[in-house]
Amino acid sequence: MVSTQPNQSPKALIVLRNVSKRYRRGLETIDVLSQVNLDIDAGEFVAFMGPSGSGKTTLLNLIGGLDVPDNGSIIIAGEEITGFSDSMLTAWRARHVGFVFQLYNLIPVLTAYQNVELPLLLTRLNKKSRKKHVETALSIVGLNDRMHHYPRQLSGGQEQRVAIARAIVSDPTFLLCDEPTGDLDRASANDILDLLQRLVSDYKKTVLMVTHDPMAAGKANAILHLDKGKLNSVSKGLATS
């Protein structure tokens, strides 16, 4: 279940209560998010839409522990992360969140394999079990045969699949994808979206995705619309039409 009302769903994985975030630019302050409430159950595939500058990235960064809100609390898997110190957040991210971005995703001087291995280098896993995990992740995204290619030797869609493999390799609690198809052509975008859908249906992952593309949003189970600092549910028919 996905809800933008503070309805205390007992099994919600991701819970936001009265979360606000404002930025100060010179004399003026912009309320990017004001009093946002959100409940997302495990196993959901949620799309966030909204005009440019409406705060979608900001919201995702807060949920992913990349930034902290000015007010309100964020509770993930029963753990309130809002009071975490910087180093606690860092460790928490490594354990719970897989990130996929639109740009600058991969380290260009590392091969696909090495890129996917990166999050595992921060764990205690030995080389052999790292290899097993990396190969599994790459086979899920269908890139086992491109393991030793460098990012520049891959297409945009393939690069993004490597990024998804890296996001899932440490088996995180949920995935955050900020415009994962923003830079891709239709066909590659569809591949990526199918892959995300498959992660939800076959691997029981929870995925939160920001997108400008109604077609992409249509693949999600739920669509949320962000505008003027407020978050609203949208019926799927409305978004895709």
């Binding site: 460790a91 354990r95 921060l122």
Partner: peptide, 16 residues
């Protein structure tokens, strides 16, 4: 800068 942000995102600590 972007890559370092990615490494930090993945959970690399400040000291690392």
């Amino acid at each position: 800068t972007g890559e370092i942000a990615i490494l930090k995102t993945l959970g690399m600590s400040r000291i690392r």
